[in-house]
Simulated scan of single mutants.
Amino acid sequence: MKRSPLDIDRGRQALRLLGLTLALLWHAGPALAQACGPYKVGLYEFGTLLYRDEKEQLTGIDKDVLDALVRRSGCVLETRLESRARIWDQLQRGQLDMTVSGIATAERLQYADFLPYLVARNHALMRREQAQAAGASFSSFLADPTLRAVAVRGFRYGSQIDGWLSQLRAQGRVDEVSDFPVALRVLAAGRVALLFAHPLVLDPWWHTNWAAKFELLDWAPQDSVQASLVLVRQRVRPADRELLARHLEAMLRDGEMDRILRKYLSPEMWRRSRLGGPGG
């Protein structure tokens, strides 16, 4: 049976469409097969970095950083709230892929990459009357055996402050708690006299009546640390680590990181906390 010219033309169009579809699938196949994620990210409550708003929704600098990375990179990041000690334990055991605002140590660098995005320095936070009684240095605090401190399990405060806490632990003068909100409540209740804290996580409260009861003392001015996105090398593919690093660097260059910090911090604290600013 002889085919009409119309049937022949339709057949050619169908073949061209099939060829185009196969070409698109061939090019898209590797990208689909190598999609970024899903990865599990451990979050922890820590003042302006992550806290619950009046509607009990998690908000803060770290959440906004992750949201921006998801939007820019297309990576699938599944977040879950944990204590800081459990996060580091799971990262080291290979049960968690990432965390936020992590502080690098020699031990942690053995299994994870650290991508910094802000700078912080811990200060001594004390009730005002106790700060005046203890004097202006750690040595005077150490000399009074009646004074105690509180620390969060899994936190690294900086080399000098970590050394001071080791001295206090040796004397049985440190209460260990699961997270920062608990530590803050222990201090506010008067059960301890000292908590080391980043001013940036306290910034919203520091401009209220709450601050009148407390004093921040800069005992370790050289003990600045960089807070980083932490990626476990055995869990996050090299290409995805490179992708996230590239987008985080772009956020630091194009001003998105500055916009996030300004959203939660006072102008002075923003300048001190930005990477490459006065704080680091």
Rank of each mutant, 00 (worst) to 15 (best):
L195H: 06
D64T: 09
Q234I: 03
Q160V: 15
G60W: 05
K213Y: 08
A14S: 09
G135P: 02
A143K: 12
E78V: 11
L20S: 07
K55G: 03
Y111W: 10
G279P: 11
Q92S: 11
V150T: 06
R262G: 14
G94R: 05
S266L: 12
A197Q: 07
R72W: 09
D175P: 01
Y51E: 07
V150S: 10
R121F: 06
M98L: 14
L231C: 07
E82A: 05
R235Q: 15
D113R: 13
R191P: 03
L252N: 11
G255C: 04
W219Y: 13
R86W: 11
R84A: 08
A188M: 03
A170P: 01
L20W: 10
V70H: 03
T105V: 05
E56F: 03
P38N: 14
L115P: 05
G190T: 04
S159Y: 08
F46R: 08
P278F: 11
L184M: 11
I103A: 05
F114Y: 14
L15H: 06
G19S: 07
H27D: 00
A68F: 02
G74R: 09
P238S: 04
R233S: 03
S73C: 10
S140Y: 02
G19M: 12
R71G: 01
K63V: 13
P116H: 06
P199S: 05
T208I: 07
L109A: 14
A197G: 02
R153S: 10
R52C: 09
Q132H: 06
D179L: 08
R274I: 09
A250D: 12
S178T: 12
G11E: 14
T48M: 00
T79R: 15
G190I: 02
R128I: 14
L265R: 05
T79C: 15
Q34V: 00
C36A: 15
G42R: 05
D175K: 09
H247W: 13
C36G: 07
L115V: 08
E45S: 13
I103L: 09
L194Q: 06
G158N: 13
I103M: 10
R3I: 04
L200G: 03
D113T: 14
K63F: 06
R191E: 11
P145L: 15
R3C: 08
R235D: 10
N209L: 08
V232G: 01
I61L: 11
P38M: 15
A143T: 01
L58I: 09
Y44C: 04
E249N: 14
R235V: 07
A143W: 01
R93D: 12
M269V: 02
V76P: 01
L96C: 05
L22R: 06
L15N: 02
R271T: 10
L24G: 11
V236K: 08
T99Y: 07
A31F: 13
S224W: 03
L195S: 01
L17C: 04
V201W: 04
R127L: 08
L6D: 07
Q160K: 13
